[in-house]
Design a protein around this nucleic acid. Sequence first.
RNA 1: GGACGCUUAGCUCAGUUGGGAGAGCAUCGCCCUUACAAGGCGAGGGUCACUGGUUCGAGCCCAGUAGCGUCCA
Length: 949
Amino acid sequence: METKFNPSAIEQALYQSWEEKGYFKPSGQGDSYSIMIPPPNVTGSLHMGHAFQDTIMDTLIRYKRMQGNNTLWQVGTDHAGIATQMVVERKLAAEEDKTRHDLGRDAFIDRIWDWKKESGGTITKQLRRLGASVDWDRERFTMDEGLSEAVKEVFVRLHKEDLIYRGKRLVNWDPKLHTAISDLEVENKDKKGSMWNLRYPLADGVKTQDGKDYIVVATTRPETMLGDTGVAVNPEDERYQDLIGKDIILPIVNRRISIVADEHADMEKGTGCVKITPAHDFNDNEVGKRHQLPMINIFDKDAAILSQGESYDFTGKAIELDAPIPERLHGLDRFAARKAIIAEFEEAGLLEEIEDHSLTVPYGDRSGVVIEPLLTDQWYVRVAPLAEPAVQAVKDGEIQFVPKQYENMYFSWMNDVQDWCISRQLWWGHRIPAWYDENGQVYVGRDEAEVRAENQLADDVKLTQDEDVLDTWFSSALWTFSTLGWPEQTPDLKTFHPTDVLVTGFDIIFFWVARMIMMTMHFNKDENGKAQVPFKTVYVTGLIRDENGDKMSKSKGNVLDPIDMIDGIDLESLVEKRCGNMMQPQLAKKIEKNTRKAFEAGIEAHGTDALRFTLAAMASTGRDINWDMNRLEGYRNFCNKLWNASRYVLMNTQDQDCGYGDNQDFEYSLADRWILGQFENTVKTFTDHLDNYRFDLAANTAYEFTWNQFCDWYLELTKPVLNSGTEAQQRATRYTLITVLEKLLRLMHPLIPYITDAIWKNVAPLTGVNQDTIMLQAFPTFDANKVDEAAMADLDWVKQFILGIRNIRGEMDISPNKPLNTFIKNASAEDKRRLTENQGFLQGLAKLESITVLNEGDEAPVSSAALVGEMSILIPMAGLIDVEAELARIDKNIEKIAKDLARVEGKLKNDNFVSKAPAAVIDKEKAKLAEMQTAISKLEEQKSTIKAL
RNA sequence: GGACGCUUAGCUCAGUUGGGAGAGCAUCGCCCUUACAAGGCGAGGGUCACUGGUUCGAGCCCAGUAGCGUCCA
């Protein structure tokens, strides 16, 4: 083995071999354990957040696989409607200067499939590099035939049950992408803008209480006044009591509208009068429904002004209501129209005031343009009936969120859930299985033939399919069961559903998790007819942010590619990667500057295992996780430490008798017995943490044992034995070395699969195991019989002894190479036993020339002393230690202890404490006090001895 | 405006039922000792945001304040 761990030399070959040999497939043995990967967007590539979640999933799957479960990790991708369509449209524009309309729907969709074939492999390559043990043969895509069947089936059934309906409703319209989007795809941003106060003239000579012939309404979107169908005042508002029911002549269009009383009008805000535009504002829409006001749409699909308003009654039915718009405004974009309308108000003396105003503006998360509420025909899922059992399942604990706090987030959204707009005006996606005849009558069915048959439509009735497609989340809501073959009742569905755990970020609890629970429970029942949940546990991860705590995003240019953490990348390539092919090229300079500053020397290679270990170690319960390159480096060093420790073990065990042969003559050292027990305790703690989804604590446990116990102490303690022990002693130590290392590798394999398998291949044969891979070996189990408490206590004493000497060496600048003569004072019978038994360890690790036990009354040379309980270890100062320095060292120690002592003393003098605290606590404090008193008196004694010189 | 979360060492973060403040990185000192300088040994460093309450005892429980963040309106 090389002296440095080189991940690139082992990783890809190992993965290939695991995959080829089919190790990732369900074994078909044992209890099933399944995880469905949250399907990443096929257009994209995995970012650090994916790497984080995938590491956790792989750790769980490998852990359960080693525990003997029949494990399935289902992999796949999502067709990502808008995102994918946009990517291919942009490519088409750049390379051929064509739009999708030039190609036509079918040809365009063919292009998307071509593109997917070409670049859809990015994600699967990345997943392989991360070591993900997914069953590739079952890889699925939301647009696959099988999944498309499931989507159709669900749509048709929900429609039959009246849980899907079509209606003219106000939706969030993206005027750039020409599609409706759901509430969740809207990003609300705080902006500074203006509030325009407009005068609306009263009709029929009516006057306000203060004698004016107009009222004033305030608006942030003046252009929508063209579609006003009322003005609301608060019913309690005394100022306007006598105006309720009176009319207004709407300026510019000269349409007559009424004043209604509605609580939506806030008396405190502005003048207390609110213009009502039911076709262009969600709140106004509600007001309109309450007062049965008509709706007038004034925008086309680009959000430009129509030449004639389109009128509907409050239910969305078209009505004959003349809503002319002056020709000078026709075709104006909404923002141009805003300017023009303000100018006209001003000219007419109807502009009362413009105030600065901060407001929340909705933006499309994909297009980045301002969303316009627009009346359109859309398909909706009636969510309330589906939500009820979905809420109950979480309340009953059938589904548990980890950490639990996220249940609140789920409940708060579910309790106020809106109907879900599922139609999208796109070409890429699952086409809605609905057909229209020439009268606009709609028929829903699995295909056209079924529609004709079910509705007795003659062959000459012309039917056309709905042009729209379904929201991508509609198909991903079916993910846990559609991937297993539903609607067929397949054996896979029976075996692996419900799945065990869903690993995801809190940002998609609404988008995905909630909808998955609703859909799954509605369509999947167990043999008793009880609704089946999609998963038993939802493990919610935090979001990975950059080193400044900012969200990683392409437009900020602070995204990190997990592959760059693994392989490293030079600065120029990183700059190119971040600045090339941007949607907003003007940001490139700034991003380049920030990148050059943050990664002066590029990024070094760290390997997959270090990346995975880092991600696991950062998986605490918080909502934000700030990425830290320093930690990655630290854990790379950890991998190197493990590598070198293994080299040491192998050097001392290969081609030697490790006790796995016939000769069973063993004589274990204290260190052997101690490390065996320490390891068992580590297994227990590590397993508990994994079972509780505390990957951070599990990683710390593994790190602490490996570095601070196994390497720092145990390996050092084997050296005296291997150098000068008897054959039986050496055999026992070799046995312990190789056994503990082999088990440790198995323990850590789920976290760091590559390095553990690579080392294990060398280690296992020495324990008599000749198999191909660690990943199919049993996970270590805790064995209480191997925990030797006496050995633990004895070794603790040995450590304290050695630490005492090292502390004096360190503080007094005595070279670690200088052998020391020591004297022992006040040794108890037990101390003497421990001294005798462990002389080799003490001399070896503390580098001692001699240890002389002083009897009562023996003269000791003037020395510096270290304490182990009552016993003192003396190092003669002559020629080594300066008197002043030693006095200072003693004072420092006394001072430190005295501070603590005072506190404990105070506690014990407090009658309240002594009478009310539990006896165990008091005893502990008393013992502590005694110990500190002894220590101080010994130190004082030492001091006076030295001073007496 | 409403809801939730966060504030612990220079940095990134742990801290289980309330009972002696921890880790990694960074810093300082000494060491190229035959597993490892991506290392070894030793050391320093905290008013646990602030104020008050409950308690014998609070980083932890309760109330309030400030700052930051996320979601919703």
